[in-house]
Simulated assay, not measured.
Amino acid sequence: MTHEVRAVVARTKGAPVSLETVIVPDPGPGEALVGVQACGVCHTDLHYREGGIGDAFPYLLGHEAAGVVESVGDGVTDVAPGDFVILNWRAVCGRCRACRKGRPQYCFDTHNAAQPMTLADGTPLSPALGIGAFAEKTLVAAGQCTKVDERASAAAAGLLGCGVMAGFGAAVNTGGVGRGDSIAVIGCGGVGMAAVAGAKVAGASRIIAVDVDERKLKWAEEFGATDTVHSSGTDPVEAIRALTGGFGADVVVDAVGRPETYRQALDARDLAGTAVLVGVPSPQATVELPLLDVFGRGGALKSSWYGDCLPSRDFPALVDLHLQGRFDLDRFVSERIALDEVEESFDRMRRGDVLRSVVVL
């Protein structure tokens, strides 16, 4: 049996997305069919549309999603029909060298559904990050489904599927920020804002938000920033040092991913401090560093994959924090839109008018 659903498709590079009829098969072994309730509009979807990730058009966009499992294939035991789940794009294999070492968050052989979803004429679709959730239903590997408390709204919970988890995890999991630490976050979009919020949850004493947009800095204060730096007219490295007794921050998160912001992150950290790259660089970006400075400052230079999260561990925990009132996921939702409004939401995202537009089905 197959299912005809409405879904948002990027047919060709750079062209506006379109609302199409998509054919979704019933789940096979190890797969799950999920009725999507909400899906955030992430920069990654725009990168797919622009051909910045690959050229396997047409793409079925959308990946920051939550919904309800409708059916599962043979061999699936971790989720069942009726479960409220958040979708993730790193279903771990359990067999690779990272998984065998007890570090499945670094799994080197993550997987997605084996069966393709297609256009009505049979053309196979490439689902964004193996999910494709700007759709009424989507087919994923069962390991991409994490059951969470159904009291959380789908619009808020789904954002843990990508950007919010990436930012929170960059600060807490990768950076290891903790009670009494100082942290600076360079770039206050959705990922950077989640790093700010994560640092607050973790008990950081000084949380410095850095951006060129005054609106985002005001939002950062609402998420827990103790200080803000408008970097268009101020040297952010000197400002961060001035706010930390001249030393630099214990942790600096680069949520932009440009050579200049990465260098700022390195220079703005304290001795033995940690710099975390979570912003996605362009393929052409390069960095040249004085090696003696890298050696002399000590500490760590880290990259954060998906916030170094393990969905089965982190998604339920963060939803619980949200329901306790300690981590306000709803604050990330700038607007709720329909499936046919995704293209317009890309324009608002480019202008920095929103943290997240969320498609609600």
Rank of each mutant, 00 (worst) to 15 (best):
I208G: 02
A195L: 12
V210S: 07
V210H: 07
M193S: 11
V212T: 15
G203F: 08
A209S: 12
G189W: 01
V185K: 01
I186L: 15
A202S: 12
V201F: 09
D211S: 07
G203E: 13
D211P: 00
G203S: 14
G187W: 10
A184E: 08
R206N: 04
I183Q: 00
V212P: 01
V196I: 15
S205D: 15
V185G: 01
G203R: 14
V210K: 03
A202R: 14
M193A: 05
I183P: 01
A209G: 10
G192T: 07
G203I: 09
A197M: 15
I207Y: 01
V191R: 08
A194D: 05
A184I: 12
V185R: 01
A194T: 10
I186P: 06
K200A: 15
I207E: 03
I208D: 00
A209D: 08
M193P: 03
A199V: 10
A209Y: 10
I186K: 04
I208C: 07
A194H: 06
A204K: 03
V210A: 11
I207T: 03
R206F: 02
A199M: 03
I207Q: 00
I207R: 00
I183V: 14
K200D: 04
I207D: 04
G190P: 12
A209M: 08
I207C: 04
V201K: 09
A199G: 04
I208M: 00
I208E: 03
S205F: 13
K200P: 07
I186F: 09
S205K: 13
G198W: 06
A202V: 06
G203P: 06
A199I: 01
G203C: 09
G187E: 14
A202N: 13
G192Q: 08
K200T: 13
R206M: 04
I208Q: 00
G189K: 03
G190F: 09
I207S: 03
A199H: 02
A204I: 04
A184T: 11
G192R: 12
G190D: 10
I183R: 00
V191H: 10
V201T: 13
A197I: 04
V185L: 07
A202L: 13
G192H: 11
A184P: 15
A194F: 04
A199F: 02
D211I: 00
V185P: 01
M193T: 14
G192F: 15
A197V: 09
A184R: 11
I207F: 03
G190K: 09
I208H: 08
R206G: 02
A209I: 14
G192L: 09
V201P: 03
I186H: 05
A204H: 10
A209K: 02
V196Q: 05
A204E: 01
S182Q: 06
D211T: 05
I186N: 06
G187I: 14
A209T: 10
D211V: 10
K200M: 15
I208W: 02
A194V: 14
S182M: 01
V191A: 13
I208L: 06
S182E: 02
G190V: 09
A199R: 05
